[in-house]
């Protein structure tokens, strides 16, 4: 029997505010993500991409609809329960890297494992391995301030990988990078997906980057307008 989908969104809505001024950021979204998929979400600004990511990442709760993450209904979970889901199953990569300043690359990568209560030696070993996967083991002792943008994003990817998550959520991972570095990062993500079997959901506004994914979700006005395979890389 096939593994259950990692993510199932059913008629998910997210409404900010109430009454006349209510803003419907998500308006009845249905989306299923299976293990091993690499999905890109695109759409004009204000189309609900980020809100969708926040809901999928269990950072936000939908106003209505059902969201099952690995078979668990997320809507009814408390804040702390959602934190546990993120802690154990979700890796985040942000546009702005979001590394802790004045903290070495190694310590940044260790961070998720601290919240899993792992011992220091085990953490360091795992963090070094994760840094090796993104080709930065030689920069383990460097602070983010001494790394290039691309290197910082690779540290962030290592941090997302270190806990062997079920899914990686990448919110405009190449938004702050030049084209050449963007391609490097996307190659890396695709490698992790193809060779490591990592499930990835990525938000981007660059069609060239979306091509690295297998499936493209196009959002308009809080709805999914198109759900189709990507053309692939030329």
């Amino acid at each position: 029997m096939a593994e259950p989908p990692v993510i199932v969104l059913e008629r998910i809505s997210r409404v900010y505010g109430t009454g006349e001024i209510a803003v419907r950021a998500l308006d009845g979204i249905d989306l299923t993500v299976r293990a091993g998929e690499f999905i890109a979400i695109m759409g004009p600004s204000g189309s609900g991409k980020s809100t969708a990511m926040n809901v999928i990442g269990c950072l936000d709760t939908p106003s209505s609809g059902n969201y099952r993450f690995m078979g668990v209904e997320v809507a009814g979970l408390t804040r702390d329960q959602r934190a546990l889901l993120r802690r154990h199953y979700i890796g985040f990569v942000f546009q702005g890297y979001n590394l802790l300043p004045r903290t070495s690359a190694l310590q940044n990568v260790e961070l998720p494992l601290i919240y899993r209560g792992r011992g220091r030696a085990e953490r360091q070993k795992a963090a070094l391995e994760a840094l090796a996967r993104v080709g930065l083991e030689s920069r383990a002792a460097h602070d983010p301030g001494r790394l290039s943008g691309g290197q910082q994003q690779r540290v962030a990817i290592a941090r997302a990988l270190v806990g062997a998550p079920k899914i990686m959520l990448a919110d405009e991972p190449t938004g702050n990078l030049d084209t050449r570095t963007s391609v490097e990062i996307m190659e890396m993500l695709r490698g992790l997906n193809r060779e490591g079997g990592l499930t990835i959901v990525m938000v981007t506004h660059e069609p060239d980057m979306a091509r690295y994914a297998d499936r493209l979700i196009w959002m308009v006005d809080g709805r999914i307008a198109r759900d189709e395979p990507t053309p692939g890389i030329a």
Binding site: L59, R86, L111
Partner: peptide
């Protein structure tokens, strides 16, 4: 604030 956001995102609970 940003550091707190990062910690919460990667799985810190309120009590952490």
């Amino acid at each position: 604030t940003r550091e707190i956001g990062i910690r919460l995102a990667i799985g810190a609970q309120a009590r952490d």
